[in-house]
Write a protein that binds this DNA or RNA. Structure first.
Lengths: 200, 200
DNA sequence: AGTAATTGTTGAACTGAGTCTAGTTAATGT
DNA sequence: ACATTAACTAGACTCAGTTCAACAATTACT
C-alpha cells in the first residue's frame, strides 16, 4: 500500500496549492507586497521549494492562461485541413483563439486577464508577459508558414494577431461583468487583421 | 566665469557617458554579467548616481530607440491634416514610422534593435520592452481616435501596427548588413494592417 | 529486511537590482 | 559671508532568483 505513481519522495505541495496561497495574499496585500517567503509559508513548504514548482514568482500569475495557451497550441498542432491557403490558416488561428476563449468563460478566468492593470506597474509581470507573447508568436508563425506564408509575413501576421487579441482581451476585461463573451470581442477585433493578411 | 545654466552642483556625468561606458562593458562581457557598479565605476561616478540618470539598468539599452520614439510622438503630435479619416490616420502613422526609421539609418542604430536576441533571455529587457510597447500604443491609439476610430478599434489597430513594426524590425535586424533600409521592411509588413483596418 | 536508486525538501549563503536616507559637496544668488 | 539649490555618495536595506550540499521519503532490487 501507499504506492505512488512515481519513484522518490512524493511532492509536498502542488502548483495549485501555491497558486491558491499566492492569490489570497495578492488580494490581501497586493502582488508587489507579497513575498515568496509568505506564499510558501502559507502553503506549508519552504521558500526554496517554491522554485520546484514555478521558475519565478510571476508565474503563479499565469497558470490559468498558460493552460489556455497550451490548449491553443494543441488545437493548432492537431489541425488537419484540406485547403492550405493563407486565408484558411488565419481563420484556423482565429477559430482556435475563440474556442479557447469560450472554454475559459466556463472555467476560471486567468488572473493575468482580470488583473491586467498590474502589467503596467510590476516589472516581473511585464517580463513574463513578453515571454508568453514571444512563445505564442513562434508557434503561430510556424503554423502559418505551413499555410503558404513566407517567414517574414508569417511573423508579421502572428505578431499582429496576438497583439490584437490582447487589445480585445483588455477591452473585454475593462468592460466589467456585464459584457459580451470574450470570443465576440476577439472576432470583431481580429476581423481586419485576418482580412488584411488574407489578401494576395 | 564658470557660470552654469542651472543652480546647484553641476552634473558629474551624463546619460551619454553612462551609455558609452555601459555599451563597452556589454560588448566585453555581455549585458547580464555587467553590473551597475561596473558601469558607474568606468564612468567615474558612484553606483547611486546611476539612478539620477536612468531609472533602471535596462534603460541604457533604450536611449537611442527612446529618442526615435519621441520623434515619432512629435511627428504625430504636430500633424495637421485636412482629412481626418481612419485611412489617413493609419497612413500618417505608417509615414511617421518610416520617417523615423530613415533618420535612424543615418545616425546610430539603437542597441535595442541590433541586440534584440537579448530580449529573449534577459528579464529586465523584456520588462522594459513591454513598457515601450505600452506607451507607444497609448500614443498611437489616441492619435487614431482623432481620426474617427472607436476606442476599441483604435487600440486594436495601434497594437497591431506596433507589433507588426516590431516583426519587420526583427526581420531587418536578422538580415544583417546587406539589406534594404528598414523603412522598406516596415512598409511591406504594415501594408496588410493598414489595408485591414482602413476598410470601414 | 536491507540497501541502492530516485526524487523532493530544506537551509544557508550568495549576487545583484532597485530603494531609501542622511550627510556631503559644488555651484549660484544675495 | 551665508543661504539656497541641486547633485553626489556611502551605506544599509529588501527581495528575487541561483546554487549547493545535506537530508528525508519513497520505490525497486536482491
Amino acid at each position: 500500500m501507499g504506492e505512488h505513481l512515481t519513484r522518490g519522495r512524493p511532492l509536498a505541495s502542488s502548483p495549485e496549492m501555491l497558486q491558491e496561497a499566492a492569490l489570497e495574499l495578492f488580494v490581501e496585500q497586493t502582488y508587489a507586497k507579497t513575498t515568496i517567503e509568505e506564499i510558501t509559508q502559507r502553503a506549508g513548504v519552504s521558500r526554496a521549494t517554491f522554485f520546484n514548482y514555478f521558475p519565478a514568482k510571476s508565474d503563479v500569475f499565469w497558470v490559468d492562461l498558460d493552460d489556455a495557451l497550451r490548449r491553443l497550441s494543441g488545437v493548432l498542432g492537431d489541425h488537419q485541413s484540406v485547403e492550405k491557403t493563407p486565408t484558411v490558416g488565419l481563420l484556423v488561428v482565429l477559430q482556435g483563439l475563440c474556442a479557447v476563449a469560450r472554454e475559459m468563460g466556463e472555467g476560471r478566468v486567468p488572473l493575468a486577464l482580470t488583473q491586467h492593470e498590474l502589467m503596467g506597474s510590476v516589472h516581473e509581470l511585464q517580463s513574463s508577459a513578453l515571454t508568453r507573447f514571444s512563445n505564442q508568436a513562434t508557434i503561430i508563425s510556424e503554423f502559418l508558414q505551413g499555410f503558404g506564408f513566407s517567414a517574414p509575413r508569417a511573423r508579421a501576421a502572428a505578431y499582429a494577431s496576438i497583439a490584437t487579441a490582447i487589445a480585445a482581451t483588455q477591452e473585454w476585461a475593462e468592460a466589467g461583468t456585464s459584457r459580451h463573451p470574450l470570443d465576440t470581442y476577439l472576432r470583431e477585433a481580429l476581423e481586419p487583421v485576418v482580412q488584411g493578411f488574407a489578401q494576395e
